[in-house]
Simulated scan of single mutants.
Amino acid sequence: MSIQLRSRRGPIGVGWHAVALRRAIESLLGGSRASGGRADARAGRVAWIDVTRGAARGAVQDSDGELYRPQLDLTPYSAPDREAFLAVARAHPELPARMAAGEYPQLVEKELSAHEVSLLPRGPSELSHDCSCLDWPGPCRHVAALAYVLVEAVDEKPLTLLTLRGLRLEDLVAPAAGTSARSAPSPPHDATPAAPPPGAGDNTPSPEDPTGDSIGTGGSAGTADSTGGTVGNQGEDSGSVDGSAHPSPGFDPSRADPSLLAAVLGEHAAALIAAFYQQGSQDDEPPHPLR
């Protein structure tokens, strides 16, 4: 049993994030080791790969038939880098679904660069390696073969980068502590009847009712809950008189079929994402106008 690369010739990696990872790794490997590792990876010599926090491990069979255990390490986020990444990620509530679908938007990396943070290796200094073979100090061709398998894994599933950096998919959809506007209780409405009785024209509510001022704004300024801004952008016509919302032509996570994500993420994570966006959609629905 071995891993077969999809790439049979030329550079390995198609997506921009996979290409960036490959280039960072190749700057560590050097030309000859990169060439040997690429040949071993395409020959199916990598038996398996396991990605955990900060490390990718595997088994590579050498030409002599012996099995070696290479390891490639990527430094996990420090606490400040983790918070910077999550702040940017939560400003893009569509990011978990896009990453689950095999995309990692370059816009997110551009915004992270302002905080001097990257989900990808920023250079060879963030990478280290080890192997059970005697090719010291390396990196050996077994590490190189493992690296190319990792590049294709990241190309297909960018969530692998989250794992290496010490993050989980749930971290991207969980609201920051104390900053979620959705968790705040609604102001009391007992001073105004929900629906005036027929013929009671004297009880018409004032158009300057303070409880209605913030409903149509799509999220107040200064909130750290990243889900408000995007939902507001998708529903620019949500303040129509009849309370109806016209569908946005863009991606709408609240209408996504959880079964489409389950094959990539598993049922638990897919259900978590679906519940998060569906709840957000319900919270953002404008109230029925008073008549």
Rank of each mutant, 00 (worst) to 15 (best):
S118M: 10
K110Y: 09
Q4G: 00
P96N: 00
E111V: 06
S7I: 09
L261Y: 05
A262E: 10
G216H: 10
G218E: 08
V151G: 05
P96K: 02
A97R: 12
S27D: 15
R90A: 01
E109S: 12
L134H: 12
C140K: 05
L120I: 06
F85R: 06
R57A: 09
L159T: 11
V173Q: 08
Q279V: 01
D242P: 06
L260C: 02
Q71S: 11
Q282N: 08
P11Y: 01
P188G: 01
P105Y: 00
A194N: 02
P193W: 04
S78K: 08
E156F: 00
G44H: 02
R122H: 03
V88T: 06
G218V: 06
A39R: 14
A200D: 14
A245P: 05
W136Q: 12
R69Y: 11
C140H: 02
R9V: 10
T230Q: 13
R8N: 11
G228F: 15
L127S: 02
L164W: 07
H246A: 12
N233Y: 06
R42K: 11
V60Q: 04
G228E: 15
P253Q: 05
P289V: 03
P210G: 00
P253Y: 00
G36E: 13
A41D: 06
A269I: 03
G229A: 13
E236Y: 03
A97P: 03
E170K: 08
E285K: 14
G30N: 04
H246F: 01
C131W: 07
K157S: 09
D213V: 14
D202R: 13
R8C: 08
A176S: 10
L72H: 02
L127F: 05
R122L: 14
L119N: 03
L162R: 04
E26S: 06
I215Q: 14
I215L: 15
L119P: 08
R45K: 14
H129P: 10
P253E: 02
R182T: 06
Y104S: 03
T75W: 03
